[in-house]
């Protein structure tokens, strides 16, 4: 049995590293086009890494055609699939970058509006939402407490208009009894 040399080629590994490094650098940019280029580089880096994982190149992987060690067909099949996927996604991101350019005249990834809003509220130390209970009504708390009525007491129609409780009629009458 002839076993394929599985020690990877240094040059390929170095290429993978360089592709990833430049890909990450570009991915950190704001412009979608650069992000896309970064994605392409990293995608190619990942594909190359899988190829390297399959071992060194050998004869075409056709059983019985040759006695030399064959290349690993599985790695190639996987890489083909992922190349197609990368291609489709690149097309989509390009379209999205173009649409962004149509709408704004640039293709930069924008900040989230809601996050910015909440951050501003935090700086201003304002409540994040309107709350009728928390709103100030204008009067002090003492005035509000005084204004509270006894809701259990029976309403006295005669005393209501002038607001003065007559002795002996209300619960709060007191000394008249």
């Amino acid at each position: 049995m002839i076993v394929l040399d599985t020690v990877p080629s240094g040059a390929l590994l170095l290429t993978v590293g360089v592709l990833f490094a430049s890909g990450v650098y570009l991915l950190l940019e704001r412009s979608l086009t650069r992000v896309l280029l970064g994605f392409v580089l990293m995608g190619n880096g990942a594909n190359l890494a899988i190829l390297v994982a399959g071992g060194r190149a050998g004869a075409p992987p056709i059983t019985g055609a040759t006695s030399e060690p064959m290349s690993d067909p599985l790695a190639q099949a996987m890489v083909l699939t992922s190349i197609v996927i990368t291609l489709a996604l690149v097309a989509f991101v390009l379209a999205m970058a173009y649409r962004s350019w149509q709408l704004h005249g640039h293709d930069e990834v924008q900040d989230d509006v809601e996050d910015t809003r909440i951050a501003r509220l935090a700086v201003a130390d304002a409540p994040s939402y309107a709350d009728s209970d928390a709103e100030e009504s204008g009067s002090t708390l003492d005035e509000e407490a005084v204004a509270v009525r006894d809701e259990v007491a029976l309403p006295d129609p005669a005393s209501e208009p002038d607001g003065v409780a007559r002795p002996g009629t209300g619960a709060r009458g007191g000394d008249g009894a």
Partner: peptide, 21 residues
């Protein structure tokens, strides 16, 4: 969404490559 998802896909692909290696 797309940029984050693309990044996670690449990470996954690299992991698959390492598993295979």
């Amino acid at each position: 969404y797309v940029v984050v998802a693309l990044l996670s896909s690449i990470v996954f692909l690299v992991a698959v490559g390492l598993v295979y290696a």
